[in-house]
């Protein structure tokens, strides 16, 4: 369970990234956070694994206030929160299997990882993860030889290999075309249901949010302006979140092709 209690974040340049956030994310939920760029979606999601650090309030992950974490505690927190990025963030010159095994780094000792002495279970776990996103035939390809959609699937496999309790996905489909976007969202959704991994996804496409989310959190200017199950969400809700009328480019489309 993740719980934000009066969380504020002010960046050194004075920008208020998060303003009085009070949100509770229950285990197993698939939450989509929507909002325009600059609304604080990224800051929200990155607070949970402390890639950014809120300046006040408390943020509980499994009933521990993670804002006080340093060093070892922080690494432990990060091993249970897997992250997926807009730009996939793979090591382009390394092969797919090695990229996926990097998901085990948090569970592996420094010496073991430097000499590639992964446990047999870890290697087979990495391979199984690649199979789950159907990219196991590319294990020895270099990451930069793959297409964007394939790279994002490798990064999903990396997160699966990490065996996290939470998955944080920061605009995972923003660099992909509509059919590939749906494919990636389908994998995330499937993993959420099968492995019971709580998943938080940042999106700015309204139709995708509606299609995949259990629950939608709307953000504007660092504040949570909507929080509710997807069944309560209408076009009007989005207009309130975005503070303007809905436009063509707020939709990803292409759902029927997926």
């Amino acid at each position: 369970m993740i719980e934000f209690k009066d969380v504020n974040l002010v960046y050194p340049n004075g920008t208020q990234g998060l303003k009085n956030i009070n949100v509770k994310i229950n285990d197993g939920e698939f939450v989509v956070i929507v909002g325009l760029s600059g609304a604080g979606k990224s800051t929200f999601i990155r607070s949970i694994n402390r890639l950014v650090t809120p300046t006040s309030g408390s943020l509980l992950v499994d009933n521990e206030d993670i804002l006080k974490f340093r060093g070892k505690d922080l690494r432990k927190l990060r091993t249970k929160t897997g992250m997926i990025f807009q730009n996939y963030n793979l090591v382009k010159r390394s092969n797919v299997l090695k990229n996926v095994l990097a998901g085990r780094l948090g569970h592996t000792g420094t010496l073991r990882s430097i000499f590639n002495l992964y446990k047999k279970e870890d290697v087979s776990l990495a391979y199984e993860s690649l199979k789950r996103v159907h990219i196991d035939e590319k294990i020895y390809n270099r990451a930069d030889e793959l297409s964007g959609g394939q790279q994002q699937r490798v990064s999903i496999a990396r997160v699966l290999t990490q065996q996290p309790k939470y998955i944080l996905a920061d605009e995972p489909v923003a660099s992909l075309d509509p059919p590939t976007s749906h494919q990636v969202m389908n994998y995330l959704r499937k993993i959420n249901k099968e492995d019971k991994i709580t998943t938080l996804v940042n999106l700015h496409f309204i139709d995708m949010a509606m299609e995949y989310a259990d629950r939608i959190i709307g953000m504007r200017a660092g504040e949570v302006v909507f929080d509710g199950p997807v069944s309560e969400v209408t076009e009007k809700t989005f207009e309130e979140i975005y503070g303007r009328a809905i436009r063509e480019d707020d939709l990803r489309g292409g759902a029927e092709q997926a």
Binding site: L51, T79, G82, M83, V91, R93, L105, I114
Partner: peptide
């Protein structure tokens, strides 16, 4: 490219592992 280093950090890797896995392949 600092992105892979960020990904390693986000998965709980320590500094040495980040350097070895994300930096070394890029500069080798």
């Amino acid at each position: 490219d600092m992105n892979p280093l960020e990904a390693m950090r986000a998965s709980g890797a320590n500094t040495l592992q980040m350097i070895w896995y994300a930096l070394v392949p890029q500069i080798a």
